[in-house]
Nucleic acid binder design. Sequence first.
DNA 1: GATAAATGTTAGGTTAGGTTAACTTGATCA
DNA 2: TGATCAAGTTAACCTAACCTAACATTTATC
Lengths: 216, 216
Amino acid sequence: MPSPTVENYLKAMLALSRDSGEVNVTDLSAALAVSKPAANGMVKSLAAQGLVTYERYKPLVLTSEGRRAAALILRKHRLTEMYLVDQMGFGWEEVHEIAEQMEHIQSPRFFARMDEIMGFPTQDPHGSPIPDREGEMERPDYRMLADVLAGETVVLRAVSTQADELLSFLTRKGIGLGTELAVVEVEAFDGSLRVRIKGAGVEVLTREVGRSLLVE
Amino acid sequence: MPSPTVENYLKAMLALSRDSGEVNVTDLSAALAVSKPAANGMVKSLAAQGLVTYERYKPLVLTSEGRRAAALILRKHRLTEMYLVDQMGFGWEEVHEIAEQMEHIQSPRFFARMDEIMGFPTQDPHGSPIPDREGEMERPDYRMLADVLAGETVVLRAVSTQADELLSFLTRKGIGLGTELAVVEVEAFDGSLRVRIKGAGVEVLTREVGRSLLVE
DNA sequence: GATAAATGTTAGGTTAGGTTAACTTGATCA
DNA sequence: TGATCAAGTTAACCTAACCTAACATTTATC
């Protein structure tokens, strides 16, 4: 039984290993807010357990077993988030912290029941895919709103942030999953976006925010 | 923020301090399945935090602060159990283990929402009282079925066990909260009870089981 | 290709929580 | 009243997970 700490390392590694599957110690330690030696030490222990391939001074890579384990934790996290929003009436900005704790609960039946009650959802409330029971998940390639050109109209499909302030901000502005966004103008010097929000007004979003909004 | 370990010690102390409020180290260590020195050490640390009054070689007593903290953990446990049965369709024998983990979740809103969804229940699925937000709880004084005399008819109000085998056994025999039980005969030599179960048959229950069934 | 900067690693130490072995204290009972 | 036993305690040590300071290696830069 992996400890919650170990589970958090695995989850962080999965999140950091976007493209090549490689992760470096510095990023990992930053993501978990621990020192580099702490991350380094844990990574060795994960390697000893067959969850990570580790060679001194080389980038880290999750083994298939490690990746599967991480995805199953992510599955519990995202199922929980969906449950909290769908079945308990929480807002999408309130659920991350709770799910962060619930993801460590060891009870296959509990999560299976949740899944069943919701009708086997494939996405969490922020539009992120929920890994299946095998730990497999789709990775739809949405564009970032920040990359959309002036004149285009797109639909919000996912929000890649867990910052509750940003999520509340979006809600206040009338932006949610499925919302149609028309990019009116892109400010040349800082990349900020003037956007017409369908059913609401026109707002200016920073490039940073634009990078968190995944659209289609 | 108390660690889950500390919370478990407090909860165990509350459970063990039935009558006088006193708890001894040996019982505490047994309840938590740790060594006596481990319990002894933790108790000193709890005392330093003002949660327990501790004097060498004297029985332990929770301070009012410690008792309140323990009751609030128990509240989370029992609210969770009720939620799992009422809202998620689990059987009363399946919920203890899950609640044991969920009780450590730090999120007042989460438990408040649960409470609200269920309409502020005052008992858990086993008939045990749920402490209120202040940590206060009723302690109804039911009799043990084992103390009921032959000829009497009583109603099951609570089951003071968390052994899932016993709970499944009761379910299989048609015994649940509210079930009417008529004591037909008490075996003199071992105290076992022959009981007529309303709506089901006649069964023999050991004195041990009789002690877990709280009736009225 | 040498050197600075960034990245990774080792060494040594801390804390929380646990262990066993050995000892002290208090309770019990002839 | 003293011997005995259970209960409580102390001592010494273990592991997981963390820290800082110092050192090693790789990468980037001129």
